[in-house]
Simulated assay, not measured.
Amino acid sequence: MMLFAVFLAGFTALTLRLFVFPAADVPVQADAIVMLAGPGDRTGKAIELARTGYAPVLVMSTPGTRGCSAHEAPKAEVICFSPHPVTTRGEARAAAELAARHGWTRILFVTGRAQDTRARIRISRCFHGDLRVTVVGPRRLREWPYAIAYEWGALAKALIWQRSC
Rank of each mutant, 00 (worst) to 15 (best):
G38V: 07
R51T: 00
R93L: 11
V28F: 01
V59P: 15
Q115D: 15
Q115I: 01
A13K: 02
A96E: 06
Y54F: 14
F19H: 10
R163W: 13
A32W: 12
A32I: 05
G64F: 07
A46F: 12
A94S: 13
W152Y: 10
A37V: 02
K157C: 10
H128D: 11
L49I: 03
S61E: 14
R120S: 02
R113D: 04
T117Q: 10
V86S: 15
D25S: 05
A46S: 11
T52F: 09
S82C: 03
G153C: 02
E72T: 04
T12N: 07
A92V: 03
C126M: 03
R17T: 11
A154W: 05
T52L: 15
F19I: 07
A149P: 06
F109L: 01
T12M: 11
L159M: 08
L155V: 02
V78L: 04
R122V: 14
F21T: 12
L108K: 03
L18R: 04
E48W: 11
C80Q: 01
R42L: 03
A114W: 15
P63Y: 04
V59Y: 13
V78Q: 03
G103I: 09
A37L: 05
F7A: 09
F21I: 12
M1I: 03
V6C: 14
H71F: 15
G103L: 10
A156S: 10
I79H: 02
L14D: 03
A76P: 12
L159R: 07
L3R: 13
R142T: 14
E48C: 02
R113S: 07
P85E: 00
T43M: 02
R106N: 04
G90K: 00
A149D: 14
G64E: 08
A70Q: 07
R140V: 09
K45G: 02
T105A: 09
C126T: 07
F4P: 08
T15Y: 04
A30Q: 08
G53N: 07
T87L: 06
A37N: 12
G10D: 09
E48I: 00
F11E: 05
A55G: 05
E48Q: 14
G53D: 09
F19K: 08
A119G: 01
A158N: 06
T62Y: 08
Q29H: 14
K75T: 15
R132F: 11
H128L: 03
V59D: 13
G112I: 00
L18K: 00
A96F: 06
P56L: 00
P22M: 00
R93Q: 13
P74Y: 05
G10M: 08
I148A: 00
Y146A: 15
A32M: 10
D41M: 01
S164V: 06
F7R: 12
D130V: 10
A73E: 12
V110L: 04
T117E: 11
R140T: 08
C165G: 12
L3N: 06
